[in-house]
Design a protein around this nucleic acid. Structure first.
Lengths: 220, 220
DNA sequence: TGGCAATGTGACCTCCAAGTCATATGACTA
DNA sequence: TAGTCATATGACTTGGAGGTCACATTGCCA
């Protein structure tokens, strides 16, 4: 947690620092992020930085809190489909709405995912608790879907969770990577073409790659 | 490419250096790998290092050549199933045999995948050509499978390739991560339990997560 | 044995990182 | 106005990175 001094700062200054930190982590990841550069880009002195934050991890924590807050705000007035529609429909909504959120703060999301789910793979316990949070939510969803008989019962919960996480990550990476090239990323996300792409991703997750008689030509 | 001096070295010394480099990249990735540590762990002097290699990238290139060579050796006397068995059967064989290879040189594989497919995501053009090679092979396979009508035709080639790559990566990461905890990783890979796990991964890729009437209880 | 080319060495260079601290600034209070 | 306290500053310390180079050691051949 940043120190009180940081929260006493005028809004604009705080945002400038936050923005510089976001860009730094998004571009360099955690390990290679440089406090010197953050300081230079936010036009504060090195000494000030250490009056606001304990260290690099502390700034990153601030970003984690920020994204949690922003995500909550973003999802507050969105309405998920009824669970009666099925878990896959719910997950589809979740991913699509999640991507809209991502496109509303692409750098912040990129910074967080890069650190948590890419570097995090190798940093052991450092970021474990944050990864666990995402995991828990998906686990609950899967267990629910299993009870309803929507998920293939020959797949165990642990694996299904891993599949969904793998896909969420792959899609997020894909969207951020492609989206960064667009001039209006939100518009691009909402475009029919991108939405169709998302549908295809989720379709493959749901039905697999193999052509099977029963469902051929049902979609697209 | 390492300099000639490196190849003039006695086998044992060369192996010691290689081993130190492998461990360094496996543990720290490319960016954070330290030549000082490689030098210390291989018990050569800094000066010698620069007589053998141009720079950090040069050592890494050596590892890329090494893994290509070792992989070719490993696969030389393995026999893939007939293509008549179907592309998915072939892919299953490829992944399983690939995992056996991975367990025969886990640190080397970990070093390479970490750099190419994790850091590589963010380093732009640096490692592009190597990623492309893997891509091309899978693309060919998919196109072949499409012609034979094994892959769902509503999925385009590009996406199918991405799916297979995503899976190959996810499985490799999973296996290396879990496998590193085992005392005999090769034995663990070949165990019925692990093989079943691999089958399930590939089953999900092939048929998806959703329970569908037609194939329920056909497997496991 | 003497001489020379190839190989090996580590002190040293520059650069940049994280983190510290004596000092300056400026706003508010007695 | 004088005094006090929170805030701001950047020169400085330490440490480790990549890379260089003058010199030492080795091995081989005339």
């Amino acid at each position: 947690m940043p120190k009180q001094t940081f929260f006493n700062l005028p809004e604009r200054k705080r945002q400038k620092i936050t923005k510089a930190a976001v860009n730094e982590f998004a571009e360099y990841g955690f390990e290679s992020a440089s406090i010197n550069r953050i300081v230079a880009n936010s036009e504060i002195s090195k000494g000030s930085f250490y009056q606001y934050f304990e260290d690099k991890m502390d700034v990153f924590h601030h970003l984690l809190e920020l994204i949690a807050h922003e995500k909550a705000e973003f999802f507050k007035d969105k309405h998920p489909p009824d669970m009666g529609q099925g878990v896959f429909e719910y997950f589809r909504w979740l991913v699509k709405t999640g991507m809209e959120f991502n496109s509303s703060s692409p750098s912040l999301v990129r910074a967080i995912t890069r650190v948590l789910f890419v570097e995090g793979l190798y940093y052991g316990k450092l970021f474990e608790e944050y990864q666990k949070k995402a995991n828990d939510a998906i686990t609950m969803m899967i267990k629910h879907a299993m009870k309803l008989g929507e998920v293939d019962p020959s797949i165990d919960v642990e694996m299904a969770v891993m599949v969904m996480e793998t896909w969420t990550n792959a899609i997020t990476n894909y969207i951020l990577h492609e989206g960064m090239k667009q001039k209006d990323i939100m518009k691009w996300i909402k475009s029919a073409k991108t939405q169709e792409k998302l549908d295809k991703f989720l379709y493959v997750m749901e039905y697999g790659l193999r052509k099977t008689e029963s469902r051929f030509e049902k979609r697209f």
